[in-house]
Write a protein that binds this DNA or RNA. Structure first.
Lengths: 127, 127
DNA sequence: CCGTATCCGTCATGATACTG
DNA sequence: CAGTATCATGACGGATACGG
């Protein structure tokens, strides 16, 4: 079955597909959301730990991204009654709904990278 | 199986996953690439037709997006020896490799929209 | 018709500094 | 530690106009 058979059945369905895909990409947009989710998949972490784990994200951006993910119910913010309070972030069960998407995206990314490398090799050989 | 079992096996694999996912999102990034692919899934089209079909994309942006997609071998540009020449754009077979990704993205986008609506209803009822 | 060139506004991201 | 505030910037998308 080809792409056009799966996606572009009619004008309306085509529009609907495009809208749904764009919804998804919108929610997952930005430089950090996916890396953040993948990082948190290791378990609950504190703000500073996440920051270190992601390398060079600034607190402002991290804060914003975490809030976004919280709003979309991918991430749960927990305040532990220690003294002073400890705050942790962890993935919600709902984040599991991204499993397939993430997996497909990962697989596709891997195979695409290989393909691009091969293309470049071919192009160089030709030139 | 949970997300953490599928994605974050080890530090290296976690990093690799994140990189692959970001590769994929990078290639598909921007406001128009997916809508463009979905539009072209109806068959070969000329520049002006695509422009009309996408609604309000400007020629500069469309040109750039088409070039990006050509580079990544999703789209083939054909120059037909009519007089004056006719130029068409069509999907390559390789674009079919996106089938699964697109499908998962579409499904996820649809279910997520439903969930968000339900959340808003719940929040309103509470407040 | 098929684009490219120029200019411009907006938004995402980031550096730095600061508060509780 | 866990953030917020302020300021800066650069990429992206778009409007308009023009060239082949």
């Amino acid at each position: 079955m080809e792409l056009k058979d799966k996606i572009a059945h009619s004008h309306e369905e085509c529009t609907a597909s495009a809208a749904a895909v764009r919804d998804a990409l919108y929610v997952l947009s930005g430089k950090w959301k996916l890396p953040l989710i993948i990082t948190l998949s290791a378990g609950p972490m504190r703000f500073k730990d996440i920051q270190r784990s992601l390398g060079d994200i600034t607190p402002k951006i991290l804060s914003k991204e975490l809030q976004d993910l919280e709003l979309n119910e991918f991430v749960l913010r927990k305040v532990l009654p220690t003294k002073p309070v400890t705050i942790t972030y962890e993935l919600t069960p709902y984040s599991g709904s991204l499993d397939k998407v993430l997996d497909e995206l990962k697989n596709w990314g891997l195979q695409h990278r290989k393909k691009i490398k091969a293309s470049i090799r071919r192009a160089s050989a030709q030139g």
